[in-house]
């Protein structure tokens, strides 16, 4: 049984179908990368996996004892929260789930471990909003990790970062995937990097154009086209 199993799912906004025919599985430890142009339905699919958007057709099933509130999520950046007063520690600890109203000692320790893992402990008392883009993404990644030990969903985690910072973030994500065995589903613009780290690629344009191994993907028409080759769409 897969961690996550999507069968022929379709999504619509106000009756207008924006994505259809999506079928894929994610197993423990997998690293799936979703690529495609702007507006191709990547974020919508991710919201569907999180039950923030309901599929109009098909099914999304969880397995391997994964429950819906055990999925870590790093949303696509929204800059409306620019002046929100929150410390790094507050943001990371807000990822801890559970029924209890207050944090236990073990909860705080878990948050601390995640901050150590992502190397953000040195500035845990600083204001989240005053950090650089790369630091902020690491904080949100730590928050997502607090919520899960099994599956992480990342929506364009390196958008707007300079290449060096982006590469460091990709390395951290790879480390989380390999050392902790946490499955990753990541949306990315950057096909080369996706092909470098991911175990599977899903290319969307209103419907899947490709689903398979990275090296096969780079040999396909869409892969070459999207990776910057010559093509006429």
């Amino acid at each position: 049984m897969a961690l996550l199993s999507v069968k022929d799912a379709a999504f619509a906004y106000d009756g207008l179908v924006v994505l259809s025919g999506v079928t894929f599985d994610v197993n423990p430890g997998d690293y799936l990368c979703i690529v495609g142009e702007n507006g191709s339905g990547k974020s919508t699919l991710m919201k569907g996996l999180l039950r923030l958007v309901k599929p109009v057709r098909g099914s999304i099933r969880l397995g391997e004892g994964l429950s819906q509130d055990e999925i870590g999520y790093l949303p696509q950046q929204n800059l409306t929260q620019r002046d929100f007063p929150a410390s790094v520690k507050e943001v990371v600890e807000s990822g801890i789930r559970g029924k209890q109203l207050f944090l236990s000692h073990a909860d705080r320790q878990r948050a601390q471990d995640m901050m150590d893992l992502l190397e953000i402990s040195p500035f845990k008392h600083r204001s989240f909003m005053e950090l650089s883009g790369g630091q902020r993404q690491r904080v949100l990644l730590a928050r997502a990790l607090c919520a899960t030990g099994k599956l992480l969903l990342l929506d364009e985690p390196t958008a707007g970062l300079d290449p060096v910072v982006a590469r460091d973030l990709y390395k951290l994500i790879e480390k989380i995937n390999q050392e902790q065995g946490i499955a990753i589903i990541m949306i990315s613009h950057d096909v080369h990097t996706a092909a470098l780290y991911a175990s599977t690629i899903l290319h969307l344009r209103q419907t899947p154009l490709f689903y398979g191994k990275p090296d096969e993907y780079l040999n396909t028409y869409h892969g070459q086209c999207f990776a910057g080759g010559v093509c006429d769409v």
């Binding site: 999925i71 949303p75 807000s94």
Partner: peptide, 22 residues
């Protein structure tokens, strides 16, 4: 006071809060 932590989570990032089952 009882719901302070959840109020923070929801206020800071509603999408994340919903996604993680709040």
């Amino acid at each position: 006071v009882l719901f302070y932590r959840r109020i923070f989570t929801v206020t800071f990032d509603e999408a994340f809060a919903r996604a993680t089952g709040l």
